[in-house]
Design a protein around this nucleic acid. Structure first.
Ligand code: SF4
Ligand code: SF4
Lengths: 128, 128
DNA sequence: CTATTATGGACATATAAAGTCTTTTATTGG
DNA sequence: CCAATAAAAGACTTTATATGTCCATAATAG
């Protein structure tokens, strides 16, 4: 079990955008270069972020990506969920035994992880 | 990012063994049937648990698997680490920038997850 | 209109998980 | 000692997912 590279790229991209002058769009070309990844692949990942409302995109000359207006609220969890999906880390094989002990533990642990990721915003990082 | 089925099998097996009469070995055949998985595949997973010292195995007639003597200390984290390995969920692409902010957040969140998994023992489950 | 840049879909490749098959090794009970 | 039993090991296949490429299409600024 590992985070995908896509998540890694997404997090770094968000950090780059947060450090950028506001409302100045950044092209995928430049973002890809900084991370040593192909622009077309990164583009797919960023499209996911657009669809989940994390960033905005503008086509055409001088276009690119910008953070959404209330970007200071965006948490690590938001970004990760946008890329990896929101389903639980633990897949139960049988259907929903509500008094299941294993599932209870696994979900509670996952909640601890998510709580931390929810409390950490990229805006905190850029403030230093 | 998901836990593997192997982890699921391992957790369920540990629970079955914990509910079993102590020192009475349980064969992989029986354990596999209860989980609808092929015995040979489950065998590979259980061998990992043996190598990590979670369970003991005895070959030959009436053989099988038993929990180790101090099994009450075995945590969920122990089992998961035995199956999935102990490396971090987050792979940093560059080498160890110590003041890296992204890594700090990701590792701290993972730590929260692990702390919960470390505090939960299978022995707690069987006590009810 | 044209250059630029994002989006979309169809592919191709790489890696890892999941599962099978067969042989070998160890142990017990007779 | 012998034969049945059961785990361990290794080679292999299959399936699934992540990663990446290629090319056509849509949108926008100048
Ligand atoms: S014991 Fe829990 S985790 Fe396991 S199959 Fe049943 S409901 Fe799912
Ligand atoms: S910013 Fe942090 S996570 Fe990203 S490559 Fe550098 S050290 Fe690794």
């Amino acid at each position: 079990m590992k985070y995908s590279k896509a998540t890694n790229y997404a997090l770094h991209t968000m950090l780059f955008l947060a450090k950028q002058i506001p409302n100045k769009p950044m092209g995928v070309q430049q973002l890809a270069e900084m991370q040593n990844v192909s622009p077309t692949y990164l583009s797919k990942i960023l499209t996911k972020l657009v669809k989940e409302g994390m960033i905005n995109s503008v086509s055409g000359a001088n276009g690119g990506y910008t953070l959404r207006h209330d970007w200071e609220d965006i948490s690590f969890l938001d970004i990760i969920h946008a890329v990896e999906g929101k389903s639980s880390l633990f897949d139960c094989c049988l259907y929903n035994d509500p008094k299941c002990v294993i599932k209870e533990v696994m979900l509670s642990a996952e909640e601890k992880l998510e709580n931390e990721l929810r409390n950490r915003k990229i805006s905190d990082l850029v403030k230093k």
